[in-house]
Design a protein around this nucleic acid. Structure first.
Lengths: 224, 224, 224, 224
DNA sequence: TATGAATGAGAGTTCATTCAT
DNA sequence: AATGAATGAACTCTCATTCAT
């Protein structure tokens, strides 16, 4: 690809990421192009349609995130590893509101399903080590960590003057829930397999991107 | 004449609720009016704009839900009360996907902020009783229950062949986290005050309703 | 380098011809270039714009066709000559739907006006011979053959399971009309001069190519 | 329907008719609306899409034309009847270039197929009477008149300083062909049934309206 | 008061044409 | 000379909202 094209493609992805982060899925391709200093048609040279651009943003994020998270999960100290894994992943998703917006609901699950091949073994081992050390209760499965992550994401949405503190508070609560020495023994039921969701990404985005809230409320009901 | 208006208003709210439940925020005011057997213009006689109608739906739900949940929280058995409170609230939100769709993220928090006046004392007492019985760790505050609720909502979004089982699994995990006898002692930080969020409702809806993803993507974008 | 250019030019013309034949005037210059294995910009090195390329296609066809038809008209048997002339020309136009699509209406007329210099004398002689033999009524002029041709073109557009039979049926009817021994004597009025139309080619193409029906209608215009 | 709506609907049809007449199928719905002094969206209230509006124009014309033509065909003098039928129909189509543009190719055929139920018996009788009087050769069928009409339409497209004279000239030629006492006896083959084409109207219009000539040549290649 | 109808302002997408490599 | 890429100007269709009956 030509140098300028490369640059423009990146500009578009960056613009999309930025706007998605601040304004969510409701942005216009015109907006994205403008933010990138380009014409809409140029966006269409690089991406078949709006959806494809958005998906490209998501996949980019996922790729960039994968190694980071995997490293955290590799921590030899099981408890620290678990905490780090959750915290880092959470931080990533939080930073990239685009991801959050696009992927919620099911954010972490989907995210994990993308990382699956790489991550599931690591998480399995992490849990096992934790169980041997006594910081993880019996019956915890890799999929549970995905769910826990998702629950933490929900916490992220709570407006607060100190979001970080909030996240820590409930991270502890959840880690304690995962440890649960005095509790009800092993967890009832089973964790969801994290492999399911992959195919639904496209579907989901389509439904959320298509005919969003329509034209909805006029920003400035100017005239009529 | 007063009766007619009242009936129409209810018809509109009902229609909106139904359509929001099934199709989410993408619905048209025309659609709502049609579902109600009325004309759009009539909707505008009752509600200043789309947003107000949607908000009215939410408030309706909240009002209807308030007493139900309060009853659950009044259970003399602290643990059962807590479990019931969470389960019932969760069930309500889950049933009304409209609520969920509109309010997520921040659903429970907002929801709670509405119920606040009525609920906070009840929850506070519930927690206290729990702490006396040993089923609730030190430092747990009413606001924490709101957060826990929100986390459970997130679980609801995970696709599963047995969603009920999933909810139970993580309800237990969270209750254990709230009990956490063997854990790290009291929770770090503080629960969010449940009073904050109210004002942001309007804002939030605006941003989520506004400038949807515009119009559809061609069914067959390829040729013509 | 001269050879390359020549080859590319031919490739473009060929591609345009093929695509015009199959898809009519709706084709894109991008399409044409792609079919030719070239880039659009290259098309613009050879032709000032879309219109010029299309016109070039037409002129190419005409040039290629000229001699063929002239031969047919040279048949010593007047009746056979006339029949052959019409049939062959018709066949040509029919085969090249591109021509047809672009030039109709006015196809034969224009076509003839191009061939004019070469053809009119031949046709004049053909008619004279026919009149001497009694197979052509008085008052028939070269221009009439052009018109007859055009009428046969119209027949070509009628959908039929046996188009060939249709063409023959009306070719006979027209030949009988040209003979018309028992009829109203000589034809009223005069045949059009075949020299007129040339200038309007450009105009015509412009109006037919210009501002197509814009973009497609949604495949599924209903919902989304 | 409300009075103003009725008026607007007519305005749209009229505008479409006028513009179709002058500019063919390439017109924009925006253009039509503007010509009608209305907004595009209003056009969409009355017609589901561009195509439907155009089809409505055509059907309107057809309805308006039906009785006129039927009357002509009812003339007791067979020859005059035939001549009148052809001339009147021709005049109609010629006046309404919209019809012509939309329906060509296959104009008369389709047109006839619409009128079929009403017309075919009349035409059959007309021919029979003609055959008894000796002004129509053996083997002529109702469908032949449709074809003859189509051939005359083709003549209409020939630019001329005296189009009327041209039409008369070839009308005579064709009538002589239909009479053909001295000719080759009965016509070879069979006339097309005029019943076929109806279904293809929609198809045809779709293909001709969709992605017309694309955006094609800029009217004023102003900038770039 | 309630409705049918009208409208302005987009949003997504396409394409002829030009610019930079 | 040829290409890849960029662009401006359309065009179709939608929808929140307002006007006229």
């Amino acid at each position: 690809m030509r140098a300028d094209a490369q640059r423009n493609r990146q500009a578009l992805l960056g613009a999309a990421e930025r706007l998605l982060a601040t304004r969510g899925l409701t942005i216009t391709l015109d907006d994205v192009a403008a933010e990138a200093g380009l014409n809409v048609a140029t966006a269409y040279r690089h991406f078949a349609n709006k959806q494809e651009l958005f998906e490209a943003v998501v996949r980019e994020e996922i790729d960039r995130a994968a190694s980071i998270v995997a490293d955290a999960a590799a921590n030899p100290d099981a408890e620290a590893g678990m905490r780090d894994f959750l915290a880092q992943t959470l931080a990533l998703i939080t930073t990239k509101r685009s991801l959050h917006d696009i992927l919620t609901p099911g954010v972490a699950d989907r995210w994990l399903s993308e990382l699956d091949a790489r991550l599931e073994p690591l998480l399995g081992e992490l849990i096992e080590r934790g169980q041997r050390t006594g910081v993880v209760r019996a019956g915890v499965q890799p999929g549970d960590l995905g769910v826990v992550l998702q629950m933490l994401c929900a916490v992220t949405d709570i407006p607060s003057s100190d979001p970080e503190a909030l996240r820590i508070r409930y991270l502890e609560l959840l880690l304690d829930g995962l440890r649960a020495t005095g509790g009800s023994g092993s967890l009832p039921g089973r964790a969801p397999s994290s492999r399911v969701a992959r195919q639904s990404l496209e579907q989901e985005m389509k439904s959320r991107t298509h005919r969003g809230a329509g034209h909805a409320v006029r920003a400035d009901p100017a005239r009529g």
